[in-house]
Amino acid sequence: MVDAAFPSARPRPSRRAGAALEAAAAWTLAGPAVALMWTMLLGPALAVVGLSLTDWEFGMPTIGWAGLDNYFEMAGDRVFWVTLRNTLVYVAFVVPLSVFLGLGVALLIEAGATLRGFYRAAFFLPVTSTLLAMALVFQFAFHPSVGAVNRTFAWLGLPTTDWLRNPDTALFALGAIGIWQAVGLSMVLFLAGLKAIPRDLYESAAIDGADGPWERFRRVTWPMLGPATVFVVTITAIRSFQVFDTVAVLTDGGPNKATSVLLYQMYQEGFSFLRSAYAAALTCVFLGFVLLLTWLQVKLLDRRTHYA
């Protein structure tokens, strides 16, 4: 029998009490992180946008509204366009090569059984190295007379130059360092992507007649690596946009602005010339590119899942 012999009065306080307790605990636990997130990350990110619309220079007692003046100034500044061009050339040079090389290395490592661990470690080591310290090594390697690069090139009968001081080669010399550090990252991400491909796909492809290496790659590996590739390209591109360390220690943006990139320009304007507002505007351009890349990544992955 249903035990229903109770008064029908239904107290309702408990729900609020329980939920309020849980909410209070949640805010106490999340509070420090949320507060720090706003003061150290989101707040400053908003502030940088706001600052870019003013005329403030570091240390000035007054601050005035400048609208889009900083952006107009940027548009009229030859140095900005050189900087932007350099950044894009650097990204266009580093990204395809490091992604392509990373993919090639990952495929070759997976294609055999011997020395896998050694190759993986060798290619990954640059990712963990201190780029600043390694930049100094590269400086020595690019040394015009005793550097390893020129010695090797000369031995091979290739043209040599003072790589970091020649305006035509400096940006690509820095790009080479960028690639050296990025290949390992794209390699491990591709290796993880390859591991995630189910073996039976290859077996069923073989039964369907696709058993040569090229066919296997074209029919199974490459399509299955699609999402990983989009991810690797985005990650590498965002990291390339952030190039700064090598520029700062090896070329100072020179010779004659040939290696001036967005972040370095921002650093100089903001912290050498103390033009905070203008540097903030440069930061916004930089942020715009990074967000654009993420947006493209989301779009591409979205479309893929529709077809999948």
Partner: peptide, 20 residues
């Protein structure tokens, strides 16, 4: 907001944080 925070490269906040 955490996800938005993930999109912001650390260099973006340099100027305001320096001022702070």
């Amino acid at each position: 907001f955490v996800l938005l925070g993930l999109l912001i490269p650390p260099q973006v906040t340099a100027i305001p944080l320096y001022i702070l």
